[in-house]
């Protein structure tokens, strides 16, 4: 009886992760957009990299950027080895080029999985080397590249499928992982905000957007209160609203608007871009005319 129950639960979970018709389009969209955003972000700070990631950073020694981070114990032996082997002069510029090239391969879908693994390792090495200059975007990019390794992104609209005639069958709905991940992240973020009075009286929004570089500090209090409350409610209710089909479109619109707002008011363009990509990948209606058929194809 117990075995039957376990089997039934297993079947239900398997059914939950059943393949849907949008899966190839999702994999293609996710792969290309993550690669493009990673490349754009890297190039958007290229002229500043010699300040904090080079053979001899101009701002201060590389070590000061990661000594106070949990990555110190992993990075220090690597840097010691590179120093002893006299490779630091070569590695720092070389590794950036390598990262860019692996991202290009991921976008094109050529040797996709090995290139995704390499880009994840390089991303961690590069960005954790200046861990104290990291912000939300960097962790989301690590997660995105990890998913590029986990998901069969090379099976959809890729050069791999053209050149190596790889089996295009996909028998697991990887999109569900992204959906659940997003729902957990927003839900707990909503709970955390709800416990802070500042999000209900507008103070936290003011703190987040007030800057010496813009005029957002003069936003009327009533707007700050409304923005604060709606942020708490939107994030807390996100899992329910986005899962329920009739409210999905409106929820997506609201959350994308929120991230566009964050980009404009706080200059966090890369962070907002990756969040919008995650939302659209997970819940957007991504349809491409395709002849690629997935195994056990079912409409969402």
């Amino acid at each position: 009886m117990q075995f039957k129950n376990i089997l039934s639960l297993y079947s239900r979970i398997l059914f939950f992760f059943r393949v849907v018709s949008e899966l190839p389009a999702f994999l293609f969209f996710f792969r290309v957009m993550v690669g493009i955003v990673a490349l754009l972000e890297l190039t958007s700070m290229s002229t500043d990299l010699d300040l904090f990631f080079s053979e001899n950073p101009k701002l201060f020694p590389q070590q000061l950027f990661y000594i106070q981070s949990p990555y110190f114990k992993y990075l220090q032996p690597i840097y010691n080895y590179l120093g002893e082997a006299g490779l630091t002069d070569f590695i720092n510029p070389g590794i950036l080029i390598m990262y860019g090239v692996t991202l290009l391969f991921v976008i094109l879908g050529l040797f996709t999985r090995p290139m995704a693994i390499l880009s994840l390792i390089l991303q961690l090495f590069i960005y954790k080397s200046f861990a104290k200059l990291n912000y939300g975007f960097d962790n989301f990019m690590t997660m995105s590249l990890f998913y590029c390794v986990l998901f069969p992104i090379g099976k959809s609209y890729s050069l791999d499928t053209v050149l190596f005639k790889i089996n295009e069958k996909i028998d697991f709905n990887y999109r569900r992982i992204l959906q659940i991940h997003l729902m957990i992240a927003y839900f707990f973020s909503g709970i955390a905000k709800a416990t802070d009075l500042g999000w209900w009286n507008g103070k936290s929004i003011w703190k987040a957007i007030a800057s010496v570089d813009n005029e957002f500090y003069s936003t009327p209090s009533i707007i700050l209160v409304l923005l604060g409350i709606s942020t708490v409610l939107l994030e807390f209710l996100y899992p329910f609203l986005v899962w329920f089909k009739p409210t999905r479109k409106y929820t997506l619109f609201a959350i994308v608007s929120m991230h566009i707002g964050i980009a404009i008011t706080m200059d966090l363009f890369a962070f907002s871009a990756i969040m919008i990509i995650w939302n659209l990948s997970a819940f957007g209606e991504i349809n491409l005319n395709t002849k690629t058929k997935t195994k056990n194809e079912v409409a969402l």
């Binding site: 962790n139 905000k193 994030e235 962070f271």
Partner: peptide, 9 residues
């Protein structure tokens, strides 16, 4: 996740 939560700075 880089989202603001409790005690925004």
């Amino acid at each position: 996740y880089g989202f603001y939560g409790i005690q925004t700075a």
